[in-house]
Amino acid sequence: MEKRESGRLMLESEIPAFVDAVIEAGCDICAIGHDAYVLGDLEEMDAAADKFDRINEVFGDRDFLLPKIVAYLRSLGRYLEPGPSPGHWSDNKKAH
């Protein structure tokens, strides 16, 4: 999936709305460790390709917010630690 630049920079205050939009698009967004996040698996992302075009238009460039997005996802408990067979983020206890 190609990310289209809208020329707009996403605001830090828009992170919760961005995460909600990705979830509503049908993708299981989660942080991986403390340095990355994934929007979902390939099937989810393919099915939501048109919705992602709209999400990219609405929110714009967010690459510079990577650490903040990861921190927000971790605060929701939507994270996996790298390693063998990490399971699913929903296996986490509570958000911290």
Rank of each mutant, 00 (worst) to 15 (best):
N92V: 03
K51F: 02
K68Q: 14
W89A: 08
R62Y: 10
E43R: 13
S75E: 10
P82T: 09
L39G: 05
K51T: 08
F64D: 12
E81G: 00
P84M: 11
E57K: 12
F64C: 07
F64G: 08
D46Q: 10
D46S: 11
E43C: 08
F59H: 01
G87A: 03
V70Q: 02
E43P: 01
R54E: 14
L39M: 14
L66H: 04
D50V: 07
S75F: 03
S85P: 00
N92E: 05
A47Y: 01
D46F: 09
L76Y: 01
P82G: 00
V58R: 14
L76Q: 14
F52N: 01
G83I: 08
D41M: 08
Y72D: 02
I55Q: 05
E44C: 03
G60P: 04
N92H: 05
R54D: 15
Y72Q: 03
R54Y: 08
S90E: 12
K51Y: 02
D91C: 07
E43G: 13
A71P: 04
R78W: 08
F59Q: 02
D41E: 11
K68P: 01
P84D: 12
A71W: 00
G40T: 05
P86M: 04
H88V: 10
P82V: 09
H88E: 09
D41R: 10
L73Y: 07
N56C: 11
L73A: 06
D91M: 13
L42D: 15
L66P: 00
A71S: 13
A47W: 00
D53V: 15
N56H: 13
A49Y: 09
Y79F: 15
G77W: 04
E43K: 11
L73M: 03
A47F: 04
N92I: 04
D61C: 07
F64Y: 11
L66R: 11
F64M: 13
R78E: 01
D91I: 05
L42A: 11
V70L: 07
S75M: 02
G40W: 02
K51L: 14
I55L: 06
D53A: 14
P86S: 03
D91K: 11
V58M: 07
S75N: 07
R74V: 05
S75R: 13
R74N: 01
Y72L: 03
S75I: 01
K51R: 14
R62H: 13
E44S: 06
L39S: 09
L73Q: 06
E57M: 12
V58P: 00
P86C: 02
Y79N: 02
M45R: 14
E44I: 08
E43Q: 12
G87N: 02
S75V: 00
G40C: 05
W89F: 14
S90R: 13
R54H: 12
R74K: 10
A71M: 07
D41C: 12
W89K: 01
I69W: 02
P67M: 07
P84I: 14
I55T: 04
D41Y: 11
R74C: 02
A48F: 06
F59N: 00
G60E: 05
S85H: 11
H88I: 07
E57L: 12
G40K: 03
I69A: 02
